[in-house]
Design a protein around this nucleic acid. Structure first.
Lengths: 151, 151
DNA sequence: ATCCAATTCTTTACTCTGTCAAGAATTGGA
DNA sequence: TCCAATTCTTGACAGAGTAAAGAATTGGAT
């Protein structure tokens, strides 16, 4: 989905070696984490509960807490990315390059928008107020094609 | 839609006539709503529960639901604005012009960042994928001065 | 190959935001 | 002044996520 495994420009969202990434982050490699990662990869922008269901199908059993732990640990170490548009529970994605999101105000559908700049932060604030800014998160809000037809 | 009744030179955070704004939106003017608006104005980026406390001090009693109703109604009609940075409950602000936010990853402090463009959407996505985009929400993430000293 | 400490997973209970629903009270136009 | 529509109060509830403690697993050291 989203042609993530096709290397059009070879820059970013190719599948990564999760085991290696986990070890590199000082995290243990467990069946649960691998399954959670695969679920995130296979289900773009899924939320924790979706992941839980997918992984249950895969592993048979896994606890809610294990899913949250895995998601949090991997997100914290940049192996996956957590996004959370206003009004939505947290969603997860395996693309960790700097890109943005476009959300439909009506049906909440969310799609990726590539970033023209690429590297974070891709925008510079006029006045940083002394903050050390490392990311400019951009969320575009609008109405998706199918919701335009409905209304 | 955003502050259309204000002249160019005062496109900003001057106090507005809430009664008038409420009536203009077809909403009734009630003591609860006025108090909620004043609390939002007096407590920048406060969350619903903070507002509840502030208004309780003001009015003596008000229900949680009345606060939520007032916040939602006013946000829906552009009298106040709801923001919700990832990981935080909803916050409210009386500035309804197009501006952005800078959040400290450590202490979650949130400050306003003026938008150089001013009018929404201030950024254009390269590919709109058929969406009708009306807003580009920008959230800068970083570390605030005092957290820089602590670490 | 075995062992052990550290990490991770399971289970259960719980917190925190926010919503739902029904009846009482208020608002504002006729 | 009166009345219908809107809004507020009260209390129960739902969803997302966290806390804590003990069991199981991982992976490096022997």
């Amino acid at each position: 989905m989203y042609c993530d495994f096709m290397s059009e420009s070879e820059i970013s969202h190719d599948p990564i070696d999760v085991r290696e990434a986990l070890r590199g982050a000082g995290l243990q490699v467990t069946a649960q984490r691998l399954a959670v990662y695969q679920a995130v990869q296979a289900t773009p922008h899924a939320m924790a509960d979706d992941i839980l269901q997918v992984v249950k199908n895969e592993l048979g059993v896994i606890s809610k807490q294990a899913v949250y732990d895995a998601l949090n640990a991997m997100a914290e170490h940049g192996i996956i990315r957590r996004i959370q548009p206003a009004g939505s529970p947290a969603r997860y994605e395996h693309r960790v390059d700097n890109h943005h999101h476009l959300v439909c105000r009506q049906c909440n559908t969310l799609i990726d928008i590539d970033c023209a700049i690429g590297e974070a932060p891709c925008l510079i604030a006029e006045h940083d107020h002394g903050y050390i800014i490392d990311e400019a998160e951009v969320t575009y809000w609008g109405v998706c094609p199918s919701c335009q037809n409905v209304s």
